[in-house]
Amino acid sequence: MWKDFCSLFKKDCQMMIAGKFFLLALGSLLLYTLFINFGYVRFMKAELYHVYLYDPQGTQQQVSDLVYPVTSLEELDKILVADATGVGIDVSSGTPDIILYYGSEKVDRHRADYAYSLLHTDRGYEAKTVGTNTPELKQRKEISCELLFIEIVAVGFLGIASVLFKEKQMGVIRVHAVLPLKKSLFILSKITVFLLSDLVFASLMTICNVGFTSAIHILPAVLVQTAILSVIMALAGFGCTMLLNDFKQFSLAYLVIAVFAAAPVFLAANTSIKMAWIGWHPFYQIYMALKNAYFGISVTTPVYYLCSACGIVVLFLMIQPAFRREMGKEG
């Protein structure tokens, strides 16, 4: 059985090389690295929220040095128009009222809390630094995680399809029906090739963009989450390829997956859009586990791993009949 698996694995590697899949992955890695190092980290630096205080009666005594006093409401208005992330505090009525000109619901709450905390330095409201990440490292980890997720969900998924559709067109899948080998090895070999390719990609992506020293600590956890996502996507790609007739149909199915599976995850995780059901979305759980892995927080709940394992087994069992049907097809 091991010999059969090695033969299949070797052939799948040859197919991947012939299909220029490695070049595509390498190109993606280069593009992402250039984007992170020369674009994202340089131009997406989030500035601190500036807090402006209008307190004509001088009621606030323990104000932080980070608060900028203004002398009139007109001046406060002018500053807030110019400073999009700024927070104004109007204490002219005796109680502090928060003024925000731009923003969204979730972020506003953070900004308001931050502004209030600067008014009460005596009560221990000063912000604490959580973890050892510098703002740049935090940015690097966040964007690396997002791009790795996109790469596996999108490019990896399309990769297995491109290799399998070639085999379908050549008809060679049918030959495997009469070869003396366990048919499930054919699926396992494909999944292994793409899993290894995704693990190498995740390692390089993390090392190149997070830095070797930081990467070495988080890499084991990142690779575990990458493996879970990679196997699920490869199995889903395998199933879709077996069920659909050509790459055109597959592209349509891919769009559906992108719109209904990946998009809500990004929206829920990276914007203020609320989706009450998102906790039930399997990709959301994997995405958050991957993000936590990047920040050194390992997912320890066995339910997550149990559900992932069950999902993988169910997908594996589901694609078997489709694979057998493809083997029995006529020219």
């Binding site: 010999k3 059969d4 033969s7 070797k10 052939k11 040859q14 197919m15 012939a18 085999e167 050549m170 008809g171 060679v172 049918r174 030959v175 070869l179 003396p180 080998l181 006529e330 020219g331």
Partner: peptide, 23 residues
């Protein structure tokens, strides 16, 4: 089979080596 199902990117020798590796 009715049609010659072979790996188009591999040579005759490589195709036959691959298929015969299971025996």
């Amino acid at each position: 089979f009715e049609f010659p199902y072979l790996y188009a990117n591999l040579s005759a020798i490589d195709n036959l080596r691959y298929f015969s590796s299971f025996y």
